[in-house]
Design a protein around this nucleic acid. Sequence first.
DNA 1: TAGGCCATCTGGTCCT
DNA 2: AGGACCAGATGGCCTA
Length: 255
Amino acid sequence: MDSDASSICSRSSSPDLVVDDSAGSFFSNKMFQTYCQEQRADREASHGRTERCAGGGKAKSRSELSKDEMQDLRLKVNSRERKRMHDLNQAMDGLREVMPYAQGPSVRKLSKISTLLLARNYILMLSSSLEEMKKLVGDVYGGSAAAQRRSSTHPRITTAAPTAHLPLHPMAQSLHSLVGSSTASPLQHHSPPPAPHSPPSASFLGFHAPVQGLLKDPLHLTSSYRHFPGMPCPCSLCQPLPATTSTLHSLSMNK
DNA sequence: TAGGCCATCTGGTCCT
DNA sequence: AGGACCAGATGGCCTA
């Protein structure tokens, strides 16, 4: 192990602060990555030189490679793989940044599996919300048109009633008006108070008993169930997976 | 100390 | 042939 200079760049893709023991100083993730990239570039530059010297400009088959050349090749492959994984982690960080999840230096980073599961459920929730919004818009326009027709024949019936229920935030109303009758109290939360800045609950992420242990703390949520753009909530609408995607869920999660 | 998470190495496979 | 992708193995770090 550690045939490469990997110890230098260990955990380089972690966004946490990294302690450089030798220097006794702190590197931010970006600084540390830059540092690692410079180290790598130096190393690879020297590899390139040795390859050109050793190869003499003529390509060799792998069986013809000397021990040193094989090692250089191995280092190159390792370096590429490392870079690939760093890119993957960067993409994962990018995903974390757009997730409705508390972020900050005091917040534990979402694990990869949590990030993917949360992202998936977030997308499903947004899709569901979009569908409901479409339905609501259809109802409002269709309903008001019908009401206008009615009011022309029955002037005592006004069109004010539907709009009187419209709140400050249309999405919050549209979502909770749909589930309000089926939930005991929209302001009632699950029994354990949510720990601030903690990872989302397993049930919110969409997996169940076998992997409950993956995530111990509930999602940091506001004290009400009002929906806001980009912010999921644990109400009955957000919790269940849409029926049309449950099959996908079982397929993708039961690897 | 066990378990979770992660980075890295490594060999195999597939693709260009 | 070279590179990308993948999965298994390994060891380090952190937390309960």
